[in-house]
Write a protein that binds this DNA or RNA. Structure first.
Length: 223
DNA sequence: ACATTAATTGTGT
DNA sequence: ACACAATTAATGT
């Protein structure tokens, strides 16, 4: 073996590993023919608000964070996307050819399979498993969104902050983050001072350890 | 290794 | 929310 792998072989492998539920051989063949592998570094804006979608990203590895922004530039974290998932907003835009209402940013270095957006509609009609995938994506995101709304509407900032840290840990499979208080404040649409004080509280409670540019989640201490 | 600068964090009002 | 102090990281010399 000389280790040389064509892009198509690579797509095929990733598809089998991460999206085995897209099961029709014809569909797989079409994806292999159409998709390109793209490695994207942390922090890259994949989809921005107001922009048209050209490709559907099938997330192979890493985490994408999806956020909303108002006219004044205030941000709010909506949810995370993980491997084997895709972006519901993107799919929704593809169906109606409308601009994105959210921004998607690579939370870590990520790898995606990029599929031309027009395949969305075609495959929906042609392949049951693709349709299921799309429907399940919507359902999952809808539930996730309800949870987010509950948090915003009914929970105090201290609870939201803890939830934010736990969600982040789950999404990235890490219990320590390289992040600043300011960045958290942006995600939660709060102010840096409030976040700093609440983080300090959490540290006193023994839930986290703080240092500059770094937060570590500690195991839950029994009260 | 040291000094300078910039960014981050802490705190009182 | 704002102002400012204190601390720490990044950078250049």
């Amino acid at each position: 073996m000389d280790g040389f792998v064509t892009e198509q072989q690579q797509v095929e492998t990733l598809l089998r590993e991460r999206f085995p539920f897209l099961s029709e051989p014809d569909l797989q063949a079409e994806i292999i023919a159409q998709a390109t592998v793209r490695d994207i570094p942390e922090g890259t804006v994949i989809i921005d608000i107001g922009s048209y979608i050209h490709q559907i990203p099938l997330l192979v590895s890493g985490t994408i964070k999806v956020l909303r922004e108002d006219e004044q530039g205030n941000e709010l974290l909506l949810y995370y996307l993980n491997a084997s998932e895709t972006c519901a907003m993107t799919l929704s835009c593809c169906m109606k050819t409308e601009v994105s209402g959210v921004r998607a940013v690579a939370e870590e270095d990520i790898r995606i399979l990029a599929v031309p957006y027009r395949m969305m509609d075609i495959w929906m009609h042609k392949y049951q498993s693709w349709k299921n995938f799309v429907m399940q994506t919507f359902q999952l995101r809808f539930e996730e969104l309800l949870r987010t709304i509950d948090n915003i509407a009914f929970k105090k900032m201290d609870e939201r902050l803890l939830q934010y840290l736990l969600d982040k840990a789950e999404a990235t499979h890490r219990n320590d983050f390289h992040i600043t208080h300011h960045e958290i404040a942006q995600d939660l649409n709060s102010s840096r001072e409030v976040i700093s004080r609440l983080l300090k509280q959490l540290e006193r409670l023994g839930r986290i350890r703080l240092s500059r540019n770094h937060i570590e989640l500690l195991q839950d201490q029994p009260v």
